[in-house]
Design a protein around this nucleic acid. Structure first.
Length: 548
RNA sequence: GCGUGAGUAGCUCAGCAGGAUAGAGCGUCCCUCUCCUAAAGGGAAGGCCGCGGGUUCGAAUCCCGCCUCGCGCACCA
């Protein structure tokens, strides 16, 4: 029995108690779903609910009396061995071993599908993240957004949403000219121009461009700049895409800002004007974002006729809307949190609901060994170097296991360790161990030809089954709250629970002992655990090794 | 000043749609392998959950105020 099934059964008991008139409470007080929790203390049963405490006041009864009304019905649920009323009115449910253990077979048979759910079925989402400027390589901050954004997309998909992963390329504006001019200067052996981009990668791009355009030096600067700019841009984007691919991140759409400048921006401004939120002042065209909670109104078209970056944002938002995405998620860095209100204002001005059609997630910065990284400090670390140094698994896992909106410290030395101290190792090791146990079982003549859930009676087996059973709801919560770190943390719990089970319960019998159905049934549990660990690691974009 | 994120064990951090005795890893101190991965596991010690109010059967969690730290407040991109 899964926690969801138990929850549904308890909900039915509650509805029955209300329908029978035994429990009188206003309909509004009756939850659509009664949540069950795994108690920390084993004396409190396998699953517990505080529903009686919540209903006591609306029902006008002492909590323990409400619990008493429900307890009898709960006892009749098939698979429930015992129901106890504890403390102020908790209902503690103990399952019989066969009902709890059946889950192992369910998981093995569901395989990759275990954990997938339909909590977000029908949601069509545009998930934008990374969107790093194409004027240089990806660095550590982008790395976090890449890891978190991709995992958010994966848990959303696992929960039934239709997700499109999108990268917005800021390839318009003066920065691209500065970028092109920097590469051109490098080609000519000149110093970095004023406002240009320094760095060794510029020299590398110069070499690449020179290889493809050997005659470039013979052109005038005016003629060469557009060629160099375009070629360097292509090379840089290729590098970004390749690096992301090596990081396990693939985008469905790379959206170029430049394409908005052919008219879409002006069309967007006119559409917003028709909605009544645009005005002209001091020669510029403004969006009245203050109507929607922004601090000040924002300029769309400057007095000199040039559109602002914000105007492109507006056109881009409308593009997402026109392309059929009711839900638009933006994952931005902490230095962009001031953009939340104006992005929401765009949504509202476009006639959308800023509470449901747009969602702006803010990710905090990453420090390395306690040091903050910044361009000014000159200690930027590139994603490519991080990959070479630590590997994609350690990077993705460590960046994915913390909530994106809390600052985190990366400790490279720890990530190279093969001990409990390194969480990615801990979880991957547990998976590898399930594989090793399965290999030994095969060699020892243990197979899955029998399954008798009733024999899984050891406390560590009950714990392991409970944690495996909680996995689908963890995935659903991770999707609902856009917090994939919940999956990582739960995998760590499963890994620990598995290691304890492994120490207490053998799958393959010792020496000359015969193979029994207990051994065979435990193999199902072992394989179920490996499956859940692999599924969870997959959501985080981390591999599940068979051996370590 | 305004906005925004953070403050939980010695360290790095979970927990925050309110629940029973506050969690993990590391570090410290004990303990467990002739047999599936000891790359693991068990136990001990270690907490005014930043401070002060409030809400209620119950607050680390929700509300208000304050303190400290990070980040941001362009007709830049």
């Amino acid at each position: 029995m899964t926690p969801e099934e138990l929850s549904a059964a308890i909900t039915a008991c509650l509805q029955d108690a209300v329908a029978s008139g035994e429990l009188n409470a206003p309909a509004a007080a009756i939850p659509a779903e009664v949540r069950v929790e795994r108690p920390k203390n084993r004396d409190h049963g396998d699953w517990a609910t505080s529903i009686a405490l919540q209903l006591a006041k609306p029902a006008g009864l002492p909590p323990r009396a409400v619990a008493g009304i429900l307890a009898g019905r709960l006892s009749d649920i098939p698979g429930v061995a015992r129901v106890e009323i504890a403390g102020p009115g908790f209902l503690n449910v103990t399952l019989d071993a066969a009902a709890a253990g059946a889950l192992a077979k369910v998981i093995v048979e569901a395989a990759e599908a275990y954990g997938r759910n339909d909590a977000l079925a029908g949601h069509v989402v545009n998930m934008e993240f990374v969107s790093a400027n194409p004027t240089g390589p990806l660095h550590l901050a982008h790395t976090r957004w890449a890891a978190v954004g991709d995992s958010i997309a994966r848990v959303l998909s696992a929960s039934g949403a239709a997700v499109t992963k999108e990268y917005y390329i800021n390839d318009a504006g003066s920065q691209m000219n500065n970028f092109g001019a920097s590469v051109l200067a490098a080609i000519k052996g000149l110093p970095t121009p004023e406002g240009g981009y320094p760095g060794g990668y510029i020299d590398d791009l110069a070499k690449t461009v020179l290889t493809d355009h050997p005659d470039i030096r013979e052109l005038t600067d005016e003629a060469a700049l557009p060629v160099v700019r375009a070629a360097a841009y292509q090379a840089q984007m290729a590098d970004i895409r390749e690096t992301l691919a090596d990081f396990g991140v693939e985008f469905d759409v790379y959206f170029s800002e430049q394409q908005l400048h052919d008219g879409a921006i002006y069309t967007a401004v006119e559409r917003l004007r028709e909605q009544g939120h645009v005005f002209d002042e001091e020669g510029a065209v403004w969006l009245r974002t203050t109507d929607f909670g922004d601090d000040k109104d924002r300029v769309l078209i400057r007095a000199n006729g040039e559109p602002t970056y914000f105007a492109a944002d507006a056109a881009y938002y409308l593009s997402k809307k026109d392309r059929g995405f009711p839900e638009k998620i933006y994952l931005l860095g902490a230095d962009h949190h001031g953009y939340i209100n104006r992005l929401k204002a765009i949504a509202a001005a476009a006639g959308d609901d800023p509470d449901t059609n747009i969602e702006v997630l803010i990710g905090q910065m990453v420090s390395v060994n306690g040091a903050r990284l910044s361009k000014r400090a000159g200690n930027i670390i590139e994603l490519r170097d991080l990959l070479n140094w630590l590997g994609a698994d350690a990077l993705r896992y460590s960046l994915g296991r913390s909530p994106a909106n809390s600052p985190m410290a990366l400790e490279p030395d720890v990530l190279k360790k093969n001990t409990n101290e390194n969480p990615v190792f801990y979880v991957q090791y547990a998976h590898a161990r399930t594989a090793a146990v399965a290999r030994n079982a095969a060699a020892g003549g243990v197979d899955r030809s029998a399954f008798d859930a009733g024999v899984l009676t050891h406390p560590t087996e009950s714990n392991l089954l409970a944690q495996l059973g909680a996995y689908p709801s963890v995935v659903a919560d991770a999707a609902r709250f856009r917090e994939p770190h919940r999956v990582a943390r739960h995998l760590e719990v499963i890994a620990g629970t598995y290691h304890r089970w492994y120490d207490a319960c053998r799958v393959t019998p010792l020496g000359d002992e015969p193979v029994t159905d207990l051994n065979r049934t435990r193999l199902w549990l072992n394989d179920a655990t490996g499956q859940v660990l692999a599924n969870g690691l997959g959501l985080l974009g981390v591999s599940a090794p068979e051996r370590m």
